[in-house]
Amino acid sequence: SDIKVHVGDITVELHNVSEEFARLVEEALRLGLNEEQAKEWAHKALH
């Protein structure tokens, strides 16, 4: 599904992702990663 993740003043739109993936992206953003890094990190975490 499509999910918007908000962290501080950052909003990341995720398309066709699981809630778990979105949660991992949100966690990575909170750790200070940028959007691209957060998506990559979440992807690796799920595989």
Score class of each variant (00 low, 15 high):
Val17Phe: 05
Val5Tyr: 02
Glu19Asp: 11
Ser1Gly: 13
Ala42Ser: 01
His15Phe: 06
Leu14Arg: 04
Arg30Trp: 12
Glu19Val: 15
Ser18Glu: 05
Leu14Phe: 03
Asp2Val: 15
Trp41Gly: 01
Ser1Asp: 10
Val5Phe: 03
Gly32Ile: 00
Glu40Asn: 10
Ile10Gln: 09
Arg23Gly: 05
Glu13Ala: 09
Lys44Phe: 11
Ala22Ser: 07
Leu31Glu: 06
His43Glu: 08
Leu24Cys: 02
Arg23Leu: 10
Asp9Tyr: 03
Asn34Asp: 12
Glu13Asn: 14
Lys4Asn: 12
Arg30Leu: 13
Ala22Lys: 08
Ala22Pro: 01
Glu27Trp: 15
Ala28Glu: 00
His43Ile: 11
Lys44Ala: 13
Ile10Ala: 08
Lys39Ala: 04
Glu27Asp: 10
Arg23Gln: 09
Val12Ile: 14
Glu26Gly: 13
Phe21Asn: 00
Ala38Pro: 00
Glu19Thr: 14
Trp41Gln: 03
Arg30Ser: 09
Glu35Tyr: 10
Gly8Glu: 08
Ser1Ala: 13
Ser1Met: 14
Lys4Phe: 06
Asn16Gly: 14
Asp2His: 14
Gln37Gly: 05
Val12Arg: 02
Trp41Pro: 00
Thr11Cys: 04
Ala45Ile: 13
Asn16Arg: 04
Glu36Leu: 11
Gly8Asp: 09
Val12Lys: 03
Gly32Lys: 02
Thr11Tyr: 10
Arg23Trp: 08
Leu29Lys: 03
His43Gln: 10
Glu26Arg: 13
Glu26Ser: 10
Leu46Arg: 02
Val7Ser: 06
Leu24Lys: 09
Val25Tyr: 08
Arg30Asn: 09
Glu36Tyr: 11
Ala38Ile: 01
Asp2Tyr: 12
Leu46Glu: 05
Asp9Arg: 04
Glu40Pro: 00
Leu29Ala: 01
Phe21Glu: 02
His47Val: 11
His47Glu: 11
Lys44Trp: 15
Lys4Tyr: 04
Gln37Ala: 12
Asn16His: 11
Thr11His: 09
Glu13Lys: 08
Asn16Phe: 04
Asn16Cys: 09
Ala42Ile: 03
Leu33Arg: 03
Glu36Thr: 11
Ala22Met: 07
Leu14Val: 05
Val12Cys: 03
Lys44Leu: 12
Glu19Asn: 11
Glu13Asp: 12
Phe21Leu: 03
Glu35Lys: 10
Ala38Arg: 00
His47Ser: 14
Ala22Thr: 04
Val12Asp: 05
Arg30Gln: 10
Gly8Phe: 02
Leu29Glu: 01
Ala22Asp: 03
Thr11Leu: 11
Ala28Met: 04
Glu35Met: 12
Lys44Gln: 14
Glu19Pro: 11
Lys44Gly: 09
Gly8Cys: 09
Glu35Gln: 09
Lys4Ser: 13
Asp2Lys: 10
Gly8Leu: 03
Ala38Ser: 07
Ala28Tyr: 10
Glu35Arg: 08
Glu26Asn: 07
His43Thr: 11
Thr11Val: 14
Glu26Asp: 06
Leu46His: 05
Ser18Tyr: 05
Asn34Met: 04
Gly8Asn: 09
His47Asn: 12
Glu13Phe: 03
Lys44Val: 12
Leu24Asp: 00
Ala22Val: 08
Trp41Ile: 03
Ile10His: 09
Ser1His: 15
Ile10Gly: 04
Leu46Asp: 03
Leu14Glu: 04
Asp2Arg: 09
Val12Ala: 06
Ile3Leu: 09
Asp2Gln: 11
Ala45Asp: 02
Leu29Trp: 01
Leu33Asn: 02
Ala38Glu: 00
Asn34Gln: 05
Val25Ile: 09
Ile3Thr: 08
Lys39Met: 14
Gly8Ile: 04
Lys4Arg: 12
Lys39Asn: 03
Ile10Met: 11
Ser18Asp: 05
Asp2Met: 15
Leu31Val: 05
Ser1Thr: 14
His15Ala: 08
Trp41Asp: 01
Leu24Ala: 08
Asn34Arg: 05
Ile3Ser: 06
Ser18Pro: 06
Glu40Phe: 12
Glu20Gly: 09
His6Ser: 14
Gly32Val: 00
Glu13Leu: 06
Leu33Gln: 03
Ala22Phe: 07
Phe21Val: 02
Val7Thr: 06
Trp41Ser: 03
Ala28Phe: 09
Val12Ser: 05
Leu24Ser: 02
Ala42Gln: 00
His6Phe: 02
His47Pro: 06
Asn16Gln: 10
Glu35Ile: 15
Ser18His: 07
Leu46Ile: 12
Glu13Thr: 13
His47Arg: 10
Ala28Thr: 00
Val7Pro: 05
Glu40Tyr: 15
Glu40Ala: 13
Ala28Ile: 01
Thr11Arg: 04
Asn34Phe: 03
His15Leu: 09
His15Trp: 04
Ile10Leu: 13
Ala28Pro: 00
Glu19Trp: 15
Lys44Asp: 09
Leu14Cys: 05
Ala45Trp: 14
Val17Asn: 04
Ala22Tyr: 08
Asp9Ile: 09
Glu19Cys: 11
Lys39Gln: 08
His43Val: 10
Val12Met: 07
Arg23Val: 07
Thr11Met: 11
Ala28Trp: 02
Leu33Thr: 01
Ile10Cys: 05
Val17Leu: 05
Gly32Gln: 01
Leu46Gly: 03
Asp2Ala: 14
Phe21Ile: 02
Glu36His: 12
Ala22Asn: 04
Glu36Ser: 11
Glu35Trp: 10
His6Gln: 15
His6Tyr: 02
Ser1Val: 14
Asn16Ala: 08
Gly8Thr: 05
Gly32Trp: 01
Gly32Thr: 01
Val17Thr: 09
Ala28Gln: 02
Leu29Cys: 02
Leu24Glu: 01
Leu31Ile: 09
Ile3Ala: 05
Val12Gln: 04
Glu36Lys: 12
Ala28Arg: 01
Leu31Met: 14
His47Phe: 07
Leu29Asp: 00
Phe21Cys: 02
Val5Leu: 13
Asp2Ile: 15
Glu35Gly: 11
Asp9Gly: 15
Glu13Met: 06
Lys44Ile: 06
His15Asn: 10
Glu27Arg: 13
His47Leu: 14
Leu29Phe: 03
Ala45Leu: 11
Glu19Met: 15
Glu36Pro: 06
His47Met: 13
Glu27Ser: 12
Glu27Ile: 15
Glu26Tyr: 15
Glu20Thr: 13
Glu40Arg: 11
Asp9Cys: 09
Asp9Ala: 13
Asp9Glu: 12
Asn34Gly: 10
Gly8Tyr: 01
Gly32Asn: 03
Leu29Val: 04
His43Lys: 13
Gly8Val: 04
Lys44Ser: 12
His6Gly: 09
Leu14Ile: 06
Leu14Lys: 04
Ala42Met: 01
Lys4Pro: 09
His47Ala: 13
Ser1Leu: 15
Gln37Phe: 03
Leu14Asn: 04
Ala42Thr: 01
His6Trp: 02
Trp41His: 04
Glu20Met: 15
Asp2Cys: 05
Ile3Arg: 09
Asn16Lys: 06
Leu29Ser: 01
Lys39Leu: 14
Ala28Leu: 04
